[in-house]
Simulated scan of single mutants.
Amino acid sequence: MSTSITTPKPDHFPKDLTQLSKSYIFKATIAILSILLFFTLYVLLIASLFYLVFLAFTYQIEHINKLTILIKLGAIAGSVMLALFTLKFVFKLKNHKPDNRVKLDKRENEELFAFIDEICKSTGAPKPKNIYVDPDVNAYVSYTNVWLSLFLPTRKELTLGLGFSK
């Protein structure tokens, strides 16, 4: 397939076409700092909750009776449940995929894959790992591994919505 199905690039671009505005850079910096602040506060919250668990176990009871034993057991159980509840989303590693997506085969959809490859090449964007279609109107890119994508570049999956097709 030698014919291009995308439009040719213009010969001349304005020099400042891709220049980022100062307000965009400021807002992006604020967003990144906010995310870093969130993770810092979250780690501090988890550390303080596990310290609360430690205190619940090691706190000395001055007068031992049924009520103080029940209060200590309640404090231990409550602090452990609170710490585990706060920590549980870190272990939620499963990335839920919509059930209505259909994975496209490259051999059966050569023209579409060539079109997407050409767009990726001309824009410098990475090629998607897989391409799906679904009956929704929207199109989107998703990560194959949510947690790994926070720290390393991971390949993404492209989903094309077919809501407007006939």
Rank of each mutant, 00 (worst) to 15 (best):
F89L: 08
T18K: 06
V102L: 14
D16V: 04
E110M: 15
D105M: 08
I61M: 02
K88Q: 14
V137S: 14
H63P: 00
T40G: 11
A139P: 00
T68M: 04
T154N: 06
I30H: 12
Y59C: 09
V80A: 05
K9F: 07
K66S: 12
L158C: 03
L152W: 13
S48H: 15
I69F: 03
N145Y: 07
L33A: 11
L49P: 00
V146E: 04
L162T: 10
A47E: 09
P128M: 06
S4Q: 15
F50M: 01
V146D: 03
N65V: 10
P8R: 05
G78E: 07
H96W: 08
T7I: 12
K127E: 04
A77D: 07
P126R: 10
L162P: 00
N130H: 08
Y132D: 00
K129H: 13
P98D: 15
F38I: 07
E111D: 12
V90Q: 12
K121S: 10
L112I: 09
L112W: 05
R107K: 15
T40H: 13
T40N: 12
Y140H: 05
D136E: 09
K27T: 13
A47R: 14
S4K: 12
L41V: 11
E111K: 07
S4G: 10
A114F: 04
I69A: 02
I131F: 02
I76F: 04
Y24V: 12
A114H: 03
V137K: 14
F91Y: 11
D136P: 00
S2I: 09
I71D: 07
M81C: 14
Y132C: 01
S122F: 04
A83L: 04
V53Y: 01
L45F: 15
S48M: 14
L37I: 09
V133P: 00
V80F: 04
I71K: 09
K94N: 14
T18G: 05
T159F: 00
D99L: 04
H96P: 03
I5T: 14
K9P: 01
V102M: 13
V137T: 11
T3I: 11
V146F: 11
L84H: 05
N65M: 12
T68E: 08
F54A: 05
L93G: 05
T86H: 04
Q60F: 09
V133K: 01
A125P: 01
T29Q: 08
E111Y: 02
K97W: 07
L160W: 02
A28T: 15
G124I: 06
G163C: 08
D134L: 01
G124W: 03
A125T: 09
K88A: 14
F50K: 00
L41D: 09
S149G: 10
R107W: 05
K9E: 08
Y24A: 11
L104D: 02
A31W: 10
D16H: 07
W147L: 14
L70K: 06
L162N: 05
R107P: 00
C120N: 02
A31R: 15
F54R: 06
V102I: 15
V146W: 06
L160D: 00
G124L: 07
L67V: 13
Q60L: 10
N145T: 07
E110G: 13
L93H: 10
N95V: 09
Y132K: 01
F57S: 03
V53F: 02
S4H: 11
C120G: 04
R107Q: 14
E110Q: 15
F113E: 01
P126F: 06
K129D: 13
A125Q: 06
I46V: 14
L37P: 00
S142Q: 08
I71H: 06
